[in-house]
Simulated scan of single mutants.
Amino acid sequence: MNSNRTSIKRLLLLDLKIAEHELSQFSGGYSGKFDSAENFHKTLKRAITNFELGDDSVINDLWNWFAPTCDWDDLVGDLNLGNRIFERLKELK
């Protein structure tokens, strides 16, 4: 794996952990794929763990959740963090 990709993954993981913490502060809500912030949090936490363990297949799910106007924006709304995560994901796709 090239060092640039490794750096992007490391930065993405840091941002995802920040996002997971922010999301843990929310309850209720609704998005296209999740019926509550709690369910999104549970699913995101599992995806982060899998990504940490080297499972890059979760990148597609993360891409969909953090794409502009998708689940992250619907349930949390931290556009700066969401956009930063999405940009890092674009570099890995």
Score class of each variant (00 low, 15 high):
residue 5 R to P: 00
residue 7 S to Q: 15
residue 7 S to D: 15
residue 8 I to F: 12
residue 9 K to G: 01
residue 9 K to R: 06
residue 10 R to T: 06
residue 12 L to Y: 00
residue 13 L to C: 03
residue 14 L to E: 14
residue 14 L to P: 00
residue 14 L to H: 13
residue 16 L to K: 08
residue 16 L to W: 04
residue 17 K to T: 11
residue 17 K to I: 00
residue 18 I to W: 01
residue 19 A to S: 06
residue 19 A to R: 09
residue 20 E to W: 08
residue 20 E to N: 06
residue 21 H to V: 03
residue 21 H to L: 06
residue 22 E to W: 14
residue 23 L to E: 06
residue 23 L to A: 05
residue 26 F to M: 11
residue 27 S to R: 09
residue 28 G to Y: 08
residue 32 G to W: 12
residue 32 G to P: 12
residue 32 G to R: 06
residue 34 F to E: 02
residue 34 F to K: 01
residue 35 D to V: 14
residue 36 S to W: 12
residue 36 S to I: 13
residue 37 A to R: 07
residue 40 F to V: 00
residue 42 K to F: 05
residue 43 T to A: 10
residue 43 T to K: 11
residue 44 L to W: 14
residue 44 L to M: 07
residue 45 K to A: 15
residue 45 K to R: 15
residue 46 R to W: 14
residue 47 A to L: 08
residue 47 A to K: 08
residue 49 T to P: 03
residue 50 N to P: 09
residue 51 F to H: 03
residue 51 F to N: 05
residue 53 L to W: 04
residue 54 G to Y: 00
residue 54 G to W: 03
residue 55 D to G: 02
residue 55 D to Q: 04
residue 61 D to W: 14
residue 61 D to E: 12
residue 62 L to M: 01
residue 62 L to A: 03
residue 63 W to F: 13
residue 63 W to L: 10
residue 65 W to E: 01
residue 67 A to R: 07
residue 68 P to Y: 05
residue 74 D to C: 05
residue 74 D to H: 10
residue 74 D to T: 07
residue 75 L to P: 02
residue 76 V to C: 08
residue 77 G to I: 09
residue 78 D to G: 06
residue 78 D to M: 07
residue 78 D to E: 10
residue 78 D to S: 10
residue 79 L to A: 12
residue 79 L to P: 04
residue 81 L to A: 01
residue 83 N to V: 00
residue 84 R to M: 05
residue 86 F to T: 02
residue 86 F to W: 03
residue 87 E to L: 08
residue 88 R to A: 11
residue 88 R to S: 11
residue 89 L to N: 03
residue 89 L to V: 07
residue 89 L to Q: 01
residue 89 L to F: 03
residue 90 K to V: 11
